[in-house]
Design a binder for these strands. Structure first.
Lengths: 338, 338
DNA sequence: TTTATTTATGTAATCGGTTGCGCAATATAT
DNA sequence: ATATATTGCGCAACCGATTACATAAATAAA
């Protein structure tokens, strides 16, 4: 129905130049209030909508932030995204979200596509596989703000947001030890990713501090997909040394371990104590409730959003925060009770 | 580092016109293969990237699909989004995702913003509150494809994708009845939304078919936020007529009901049988496992994506599918065992 | 009153592709 | 050999806003 109204139409109606219209709409200081009011009024009446395409082209920016995540459909990720969206939306930025599906190849493609789409900044949580980071140089070369969250990597001038996974891994393990565990299995995701590598490191440090020797058979590395649960539980059952504690890098996996262990006749926490990671909703649903590490996803999302937006709006303290660490918290529930 | 290469640069290098370059890059039939090859080659060498801003401006399309969902961080929604993203990404569309946070006001704003951003199409799942749909006329007026999924509404020329909530509600209730329940409570979300209204309707029909009278005290309407669980459980406890079955419109809520009921000393399923909705992962974690209705979110997302994209690419059978229904399935688990 | 400032608006180039139309060159038909 | 199609490419307008620079009008200073 309504056809597109352009600033030229408004200009004609008001007998002024398109430039003045443009400036009025953008509240440029050099325009008199009287003129601005007139323009705004007519703009409202005619239902004028600025054409973002044109504006983007001449300004070479899109008011859009790109996001690449491994998977959309995980509780943690969608919570983070929710936080990012909240912030971005509040300040008028759009979010283009894409998923790498844990594939380096797809991550590269997404990075390229988003670049071509002209995103003003990029937020990334890395795929499991990714080992090479060249696909991000396009951004760093052109000074497009790039920020990593959760699954981060160490690129020059790229701020990161995460929790202190070292400390969190330590705390989780230390807790198990305090509860009397002496032969603790660690179920980890890909050690290529900082989040898992650091937790593993924390696990080792805790063992060491308590003078417990680390046996490499006690490290179970996988992609943490549920299919592995049974295999791992069998491995625990058949372990030479009786396993009395498990630190799982992910609540979902931990929960399914509990189910499977119970099927095998284990009593949790009497026979084996288990602690997870993330504080997913499921951790409070399983019986016994799962001890875990709280990982505040929503907060992380909001921080990521704020950080990148302050970059974009050129706040002063840009370079100051290269690495933001969010506090984690040990949550003790039944699965590690003595 | 690398400065922007434009088609003008390529044209100069090759001694041809920008128009020919543009056409070559777009594989226009009027250009000889020889020329195309030359252009493509130089484009590759120089690292040419087409400027989407410019292309968008002249084509007046953005290769972008807007999505408005109530909340990003729910298992169901993120699963649907994952499906949409998969499809969109495969065919080179970007997804701008925004959340209404269940507020009609924010939904309106998002609709406006996305319109201004020039999305080629819009996918919507309505907020709890939304009663007025005028904010979508901007789209329908300009023939911008608009599709509703899950929480749909009846607008002319707007296809919808959902499951048959009538039938699903009926099946769930019928199952409870078959298991011997005679006084069944239905815990519903806002009846403004089709999904809940239809399920409620199915519930009533099942009762009626089995000659069970419907008591309006047995309908518990809320926003299904967990805070209501305790209140509802007390209401069940204090009910004049002993409640022996509950049909909850949402697994998360159902799971928390089970937890609370167990605390109150109820035995599930012996004292009360419960069935949920969605087949969320939690439904298999709770003990006893929750019977539920499978709601294939990923499939719904993929269908929504495919449908809207075939609209955009002008496939013939556009108007044919006005309403897509996805099959649901009754999943019987322990919580409704006799 | 004249000159110097300040304020408000206009002119026109620019962002980088896309595309209708026209023209030349080559191929086909008569 | 001449007329008619066909093919390949260039010209130039266009998409709609932004913005450096110029200019006119209003105000202040001399």
């Amino acid at each position: 129905m309504t056809k597109k109204i352009t600033i030229y139409d408004l200009a004609q109606k008001l007998n002024i130049s398109p430039a003045t219209v443009s400036r009025s709409l953008n509240d440029h200081p050099a325009i008199s209030q009287k003129t601005k009011d007139k323009v705004l009024l007519v703009a409202k009446e005619t239902g004028y909508r600025t054409n973002k395409f044109a504006a983007n082209l001449s300004k070479q920016k899109s008011n859009t932030i790109g996001v690449i995540v491994p998977k959309l459909n995980s509780n943690f990720m969608s919570t983070v995204l929710s936080g990012i969206e909240k912030i971005a939306n509040d300040v008028g930025y759009n979010l283009i979200i894409s998923q790498s599906l844990e594939s380096e190849e797809k991550e590269k493609l997404n990075a390229k596509t988003l670049f071509d789409s002209g995103v003003d900044a990029l937020l990334v949580s890395l795929a499991y596989e990714t080992e090479n980071f060249d696909h991000f140089t396009t951004y760093t070369d052109r000074k497009i703000p790039l920020l990593f969250f959760d699954r981060v990597c160490d690129l020059p001038n790229c701020p990161t947001i995460s929790i202190d996974n070292h400390a969190a891994g330590f705390d989780a393990t230390q807790h198990l030890i305090q509860q009397g565990c002496r032969n603790i299995v660690h179920i980890s995701g890909s050690l290529k990713r900082n989040v898992y590598a650091d937790r593993f490191d924390g696990y080792q440090r805790a063992l060491h501090k308590n003078a417990i020797e680390f046996h490499k058979e006690n490290l179970y590395e996988s992609d943490l997909s549920i299919e592995n649960v049974q295999k791992f539980v069998e491995r625990i059952r058949d372990s030479k040394h009786k396993v009395d504690g498990i630190f799982v890098s992910n609540d979902t996996f931990a929960v399914h371990c509990i189910k499977e262990l119970k099927k095998e006749g284990y009593k949790i926490p009497e026979d084996i104590k288990i602690i997870g990671f993330n504080n997913d909703p499921v951790s409070e649903v399983i019986s016994p409730n799962l001890s875990t590490i709280e990982y505040p996803g929503y907060k992380m999302g909001m921080l990521a959003g704020q950080s990148i937006i302050s970059h974009l709006s050129g706040s002063i303290n840009i370079q100051s925060a290269d690495q933001i660490l969010i506090k984690h918290k040990l949550i003790i529930r039944e699965s590690t009770k003595i």
